[in-house]
Design a protein around this nucleic acid. Structure first.
Lengths: 250, 250
DNA sequence: CGTCTCGTTGACAATGATCAATTCATGTGG
DNA sequence: CCACATGAATTGATCATTGTCAACGAGACG
């Protein structure tokens, strides 16, 4: 399995062979596998590991006392669950799987070791952390300002671009392995309205969504309709100028 | 002026006299003052400084092409605007004042110097960064799941507790120097509805809000009504166990 | 074949938005 | 001190988006 994390970090900077080997060594450390709808970490836990999603989709979520659930963010293959929470005492939210998930548990120590030895990895992981924060801010805008149609369209744009970054799209299509109820909990809408919103997007020819497969025939059009500006994903290869001794590779 | 930042960090860990002096030296470095409704940093800028709010309120915000504005977070005295953005190429959002604001511009270099010399400050700033991220997540929950009344109540709880942490409350009261339009842009509601929501909270005896002064006669009651759980602010003095050679001070 | 989850549909209710005044507070210039 | 301008808060009336409830259909699986 190609490491999606490497693919993602290389959209920021170029990694040397050593960098890649270091990152690959992480995934061997300790792999775990969970089924769909299981918790990786629960609110109140004190996490001891940093988790890297290797395969499948997971999410951060919070449950209110009366049962309402908000999905706070999606974790796709290549995403790190929490790089630095160990400073805090306890998780203020939970992390759970949406599909069956394979992930690697990295100890804090080995991560520190690797980043100390490979400063470029440190910088790339910093970039990843900052982009995650930026995505969280964009979600605030999405929930606060956009209509249901714009909101769902925006989410689909974001997921499609993020999946493309880790090499999980094929042409204009990708898998979208979550239920409409999950999308509803993420977008703060009811499942019924998610359903109607998806139909609207279908009707406008902006998406094709059947089973678990999404096609975006005209990404630009969907972006315009959803007021999606990809700048917040910071995929502009900023770090490439740091490129020093890296071998040019395909 | 007492340094609100110090007050805040001490709700996480205990600082030595040296730590405090180091932090105070920051504020001398370069102070700037802006009026209300001015931009500190604009979307697209490449920020060169880290800004510390000394006095007044500011906010992160994003403006959509069609004019809609979302306030993404509030900056209160003692808040750091952006500790680490220098990894990214350009700001994906703007930071602007809501009231007249005094802030200190810290160079990246002097911050690095200080945190290298005073590891406890480094850890405390880490804590601050992580709490900011946690607040952003809670806003996602707030906008996604809570009704208008709960949402506004929740925001007022958060602001009250944060202000109390930096010593800007007096008993059960504090200043709330923003307009209802600002609150509307932050909560994703119309100004008219913010107005009616505030009246509802007033009518329920949960808040007294007159002019720019807010009183919360029964914080616990407001918390319950708003489903506010303060755990996400991580004010539980986790770092106190790190306390080693710090002198006991009043 | 029955059960389960997920997606879909219709009818209706409710929350919050929009529009348009009006009041209130504050500050300014004459 | 008053007339006036300005921005903010408030109100009423109406509209629209989205939620709720309930039912049904389709596919997956033991």
């Amino acid at each position: 399995m190609p490491l999606h994390l490497i693919r993602k970090l290389e959209s920021f900077t170029r990694l040397s062979v050593l960098d890649r080997q270091a990152l690959e060594s992480i995934t061997v450390e300790k792999q775990r596998r969970l089924g769909a709808r299981e918790d990786i970490i629960c609110e109140g836990d004190r996490p001891s590991h940093i988790n890297l999603i290797l395969d499948g989709w997971a999410c951060r979520y919070k449950q209110l006392e009366d049962g309402r659930r908000q999905i706070i963010s999606f974790f796709l293959p290549g995403d790190l669950c929490d790089s630095h929470v160990y400073v805090l005492q306890a998780m203020d939210h939970s992390i759970g799987t949406l599909t069956p998930v394979t992930f690697a548990e990295m100890s804090r120590e080995s991560l520190i070791q690797i980043t100390n030895r490979q400063p470029r990895i440190m910088q790339a992981l910093w970039w990843d952390t900052l982009v995650s924060a930026s995505i969280q801010r964009e979600w605030t805008v999405n929930l606060g300002q956009r209509s249901a149609t714009e909101r769902v369209g925006h989410l689909l744009c974001e997921l499609f671009v993020r999946l493309r970054t880790v090499g999980l799209t094929e042409g204009d299509g990708c898998l979208l392995p979550v239920t409409q109820a999950d999308l509803a909990d993420a977008m703060g809408l009811s499942t019924v309205h998610i359903n109607r919103t998806l139909q609207e997007l279908r009707g406008a020819g902006l998406i094709v969504l059947k089973g678990r497969h999404l096609t975006v025939p005209d990404l630009k059009a969907l972006q315009v309709a959803s007021l999606f500006n990809p700048n917040y994903l910071h995929l502009d290869h900023v770090g490439r100028h740091l490129d020093a001794g890296a071998v040019a590779e395909s």
